[in-house]
Write a protein that binds this DNA or RNA. Structure first.
Length: 480
RNA sequence: GGCGACGUAGCCAAGUGGUAAGGCAGGGGUCUGCAAAACCCCCAUCACCGGUUCAAAUCCGGUCGUCGCCUCCA
């Protein structure tokens, strides 16, 4: 029983064997920071967040690198995305980069996405990129034309092996090329000469210029993870040309395999239509978080396989949220009862049930990170926990702690959808004390059949977002 | 036009040869002062056609449909 991953490179599910046992090096293509991140970015990065969380949970020492693209990513027009935004905002390019890079991290933090170990920026690795280009030139894989350097696709026969493209077909289907200085339409820029108005520029052996989009990932992945590393991830929409070019550059330069496993996430559509900057139908993470809590968004994303395309709709995320609430309710019920449980040993039946469920969860995650199936295990357990806690009589503290540990590990540590009780323990204690006071007063009123007072307290608390639930063994509360 | 993916209940979504997980919604119950929550029961033969097989949602062929990439995109 071990991890299997669908490798896009081979189009097969394969046993995952890292280069070094117990050590996993992973690189994921990060965002180009020229605008706010949208819900599509959330899908990709939440997916890889869970991949990394699970790899660590399984005992691996993971080094996770995800770049920040802050230069070199061009628009159709040949204009740099960052520069365009800077011009529109009357700001310096690096101000734009800083603004959106911070926003990106803030969004990811809010979604519970753990930060990569290293977030290297393209602009901070110009020397590494130049060195790699020089190596490619020296080995005959690239050529210089008037201050720009292009990768010679013909020199790398395996070009197309990831995306299934054939160079001959590319030639036929190639659109009008912006710069006709390339030898072959599929050749791509490693370095571009900077026109006078292009202010993002660096000196290089070929004159003032800036790096092409693809070279940053190759250079930075090699620097931090080595020439050959374990997993390369990203969105499927970058499979061509970006990922393909990364492989060509890296393998041509190093003469060694690049990433051994390629994991690409399916795209996200919004109400049936693909989100794109050009169409303007984007939902930013910021806006999404204003409507749904982060766990709901994560639950929605994890309710389909990472490689599947998914459609984001109010109905779909609402369903995911409701499903999540059921799990969360059981977690709270467990933690609530822990406060007054007797410290006897754990129930063998419950422990056995959870042990079996945990094994099943792992089995499903081991199968190419099948989060929808793993989520189903949590739901199954939740039904049993609810039955136990509602009808099984008082449980021992040890039993409750075992249940809590199950949710904490699998729902919290791995999937990131089961949060800790509260932000601040002191605040939480005070809040709980205040609500308990009201619950006690209400109980006194209800004991005298004063339903009016009882309902008033409940309604007023509801307005404040505190929902009371009367149970046989007392009243519990939760945040609505 | 080329390459690729997909088509499972009202919705979302697992399942790749042995007779359809899970969630949401809906219907019926239990519990309850009411409410909420929870629990129980009900709710699909897997786009269509043909083939292989003792046996197919799962394999093969075809048809129809949807989507992605080929051009900026996670």
């Amino acid at each position: 029983m071990s991890l299997r991953i669908y490798n896009v490179l081979t189009r097969q599910k394969e046993a995952f064997v890292p280069v070094a046992p117990g050590k996993v090096n992973i690189y994921v293509c990060g965002p180009t920071v020229y605008d706010y991140s949208h819900i599509g970015h959330a899908k990709t990065y939440v997916s890889f967040d869970v991949v990394v969380r699970y790899l660590r949970f399984a005992g691996n020492d993971v080094l996770y690198v995800q770049n920040i693209t802050d230069v070199g990513h061009m628009l159709d027009t040949g204009e740099d995305r960052i520069l365009k935004k800077a011009r529109q905002a009357s700001a310096l390019p690096m101000q734009v980069v800083e603004t959106y890079a911070r926003a990106y991290f803030a969004d990811m933090d809010a979604l519970g996405v753990r930060r990569p170990d290293i977030s290297p920026r393209a602009s901070g690795h110009i020397p590494e990129q130049i060195a790699m280009i020089e190596k490619l030139l020296a080995d005959g894989h690239a050529y210089v034309v008037d201050g720009s350097v292009y990768f010679d696709v013909a020199s790398f026969p395996e070009y197309g092996k990831l995306s299934g493209r054939v160079i001959e077909d590319l030639e036929e289907g190639a659109r009008v090329v912006v710069r006709e200085e390339k030898r072959h339409p599929a050749d791509f820029a490693l370095w571009k000469r900077a026109e006078p108005e292009h202010i993002l520029r660096w000196p290089s052996p070929w004159g003032e210029g800036f790096p092409g989009w693809h070279i940053e990932c190759s250079a930075m992945a090699a620097k931090y993870l080595g020439e050959t590393f374990d997993i390369h991830g990203g969105g499927i929409d970058n499979i061509f040309p970006h990922n393909e070019c990364e492989i060509a550059q890296s393998e041509a330069a190093h003469g060694a395999p690049f990433a051994r496993y390629w994991m690409l996430t399916g795209s996200l559509t919004l109400e049936g239509v693909k989100m794109s900057k050009s169409l303007g139908n984007t939902l930013t993470i910021k806006d999404a978080l204003a409507r749904w809590r982060p766990e709901a968004i994560r639950a929605f994303i994890l309710s389909s396989h990472y490689s599947s395309p998914v459609d984001f709709s109010d109905e779909a995320i609402e369903a995911a949220y409701k499903g999540w609430q059921r799990i969360w309710g059981a977690v709270n019920l467990t933690r609530d009862q822990m406060r007054r449980a007797a410290p006897f040993e754990a129930s063998a039946a419950v422990t056995d049930m959870l042990t079996a469920a945990r094994a099943q969860f792992i089995e499903r995650m081991d199968d190419d990170f099948n989060t929808p199936a793993a989520l189903a295990v949590l739901q199954d357990v939740t039904r049993q926990v609810n039955t136990l806690l509602n009808e099984g009589g008082p449980q021992t503290l040890a039993t409750l702690e075992t249940i809590d540990a199950f949710y904490r590990d699998l729902g919290g540590e791995v999937l990131g959808i089961v949060p800790e009780r509260a932000e601040s323990a002191a605040d939480a204690a005070r809040e709980d004390g205040l609500v308990r006071l009201l619950i006690d007063l209400r109980a006194e009123a209800r004991a005298k059949k004063d339903w009016g007072t009882g309902d008033t307290i409940r309604n007023r608390l509801k307005e404040l977002g505190v929902v009371l639930e009367d149970r046989a063994d007392g009243t519990t509360w939760k945040l609505g």
